[in-house]
Amino acid sequence: MQEEQKERRDFIGMALGATALVGIGGGLGFAAKRTWDPLPSVKAAGFTTVDLSVAKPNELIVEKWRGKPIFILKKTAEMEANDRDVVIGSDRFHISIGLCTHLGCIPAYKKDDHEFFCACHGGRFNASGINEPGLPPPSPLEIPPFKIAGTELILGEAGPEYKKMLDAGLTV
């Protein structure tokens, strides 16, 4: 009798435990996860439009898009061309998210050396945003989704030029 009661109590205990686990894990867990998600207003933080006609060669422009710095560098004629360049007419631009792909510091542009240098862990990227091998950054500077409209660049919208780069694996 006592054994039987104990087994029944165990069963009730386990049933309660399982229900509580599913309830807490499924319900509260999901609610907690969603509460920590970025808010819709943050996610909708829209699109930034930049006029590229004002850019001067070898002078870095830093724009802000979704709280992140965006590098815009108009290349000089001598600077090496790259498939990652955004071409508008005869001008070539390097456009990238200005956060080091190592841990997210902002690299500084060294005008004379035509390279980006990250002070945090010593990473280097050339004027096309390609990382110098053997240093902490594992990949080139990322290219933000962009669309070209005349001489204007719309950040946040994926145009055909951006999709081509993405398909070619030039950015992630």
Partner: peptide, 13 residues
Amino acid sequence: VEWIRGDYVPGDA
């Protein structure tokens, strides 16, 4: 990372 921050970069959330 964005989930931990609740934003694209560290912000108010």
